[in-house]
Design a protein around this nucleic acid. Sequence first.
DNA 1: TTGGTATATCGGGAAAAGTCGATATATGTT
DNA 2: AACATATATCGACTTTTCCCGATATACCAA
Lengths: 99, 99
Amino acid sequence: MDQVEIFKALSNKTRLQILNWLKEPELNFPGQLAYGFDDGVCVGAIQQKVGLTQSTVSEYLTILQRAGLVKSTRKGQWTYYQRNEEAFAALSQLIQSDI
Amino acid sequence: MDQVEIFKALSNKTRLQILNWLKEPELNFPGQLAYGFDDGVCVGAIQQKVGLTQSTVSEYLTILQRAGLVKSTRKGQWTYYQRNEEAFAALSQLIQSDI
DNA sequence: TTGGTATATCGGGAAAAGTCGATATATGTT
DNA sequence: AACATATATCGACTTTTCCCGATATACCAA
């Protein structure tokens, strides 16, 4: 758990926005309803909502994943991303005790 | 409370180190014992321990203050910095609910 | 195999952050 | 007033981040 890496990942408005949207996938990505949300939301859906290029969004998700804040699941041609809630709980705790 | 600004302020190993040292000023800045710690620790003492230049450390403290993570008190020629514990409590809470 | 779609990675240009030395400002002392 | 000390700010340079377009890779369908 690299603290600096986590805070860097959170130091960007768009990435914070993505994390926030991923709290309620059904609500924020209704277009994907048909496929379910058990594994999270695919990159394309996030990209459309974000409005930046595909490469940028893919990189942002990688940054969030390296920091441990999201998990990814590959299914066919899609990669689904979802929040890693344990990481947020741990971070909240870390701020209370370690930082 | 600008989230991005807070996380940027925390995205640096030295600044995290400073915040950590300020948790126990008596222990980490014994050279300043004579003056007491009610208002925190002065820039010079922090600078010596950090080992970077005076200008860099001064700027780091400004960054931490703009993010609301520390408070400063001017006394004569010295500026004393101390942690703003309310900000950390709020941040911990923010991560649990908002992010 | 050929082609289509989804995602990842690469290379680059612009903007921001890291860090320094030099200088400015504020305060204190004589 | 003149000088010393503590801190803040400025200008410059290097490194990192932001974000893009182009290309590569992985999978799927005909």
